[in-house]
Amino acid sequence: MAPMPWSLWPALCLWGAVALLLCPAAWSDCSAFPSIEHGSSEDVSSFLSFTTVLQYQCDEGYALVGEARLSCRSAVWSSPAPWCRAQCRRPEIEHGSLSADKEQYMELEEVTVQCDCGYHMAGSPRIICSENRTWSPELPKCEWEVAVGCDQIVAGRKLLQCLPSPEDVRTALEVYKLSLEIKRLEQA
């Protein structure tokens, strides 16, 4: 290989300076992109920029906490990398209500369950959204309380649950009312 002529050195030096201007990552070490669990980042730097810019987003079911957009200049990031926190869906508690009624709850958020009047709690009334996007401990249940001496009401409630339509319920109640009147007349 023949030695390079001295006349090419200024052109190569100029090319090197242009390359450094066009590729700032070559002289500022911003190549170590901070990664995040349950999420990803995308390099959204402009072509002629001296700054590396990353845009972060979380996977479905997770919410971003911190700055969504980070920039790096001269090997220094603008802020720490964000993180993704799990989100839990609103728990469905039949015959109960929640202390905070929302569509999504953040990881470590605590909710208190309260049963409707006439129902008692089976399980813990306090539940927490865990990092695996489930509620811990297991969701409680609100079970119907049967007061002492209310066997007739329990039997009637079970009968009403078996009837397919409101018209059938109305008819059953009318028949029951008539049977009570007949009993009362027979006792007189």
Rank of each mutant, 00 (worst) to 15 (best):
A2V: 01
W6A: 12
S7I: 09
P10T: 02
L12C: 05
V18T: 09
A26K: 03
S28P: 00
S31T: 14
S35C: 02
I36A: 03
E37T: 15
S41N: 10
D43I: 07
S45K: 08
S46H: 09
S46I: 13
F47T: 15
L48T: 10
T51D: 13
Q57F: 12
C58I: 06
A63K: 13
L64R: 08
G66W: 10
E67I: 03
E67G: 12
A68E: 13
R69F: 07
W77H: 09
A81F: 01
R85W: 09
R89G: 15
R89Y: 00
G96F: 00
S99D: 09
A100M: 06
E103D: 12
Q104A: 05
E107V: 01
E107I: 04
E110V: 06
V111N: 06
V111F: 00
Q114L: 05
P125W: 00
I128F: 00
S130H: 10
S130V: 01
R133G: 02
W135P: 11
P140K: 08
V146I: 14
V148T: 13
C150N: 13
D151W: 07
I153P: 00
G156T: 14
R157I: 13
L159D: 14
L159E: 15
L160D: 11
V169F: 04
A172V: 09
E174M: 11
K177F: 06
E181G: 03
R184F: 05
Q187Y: 07
A188W: 08
A188M: 14
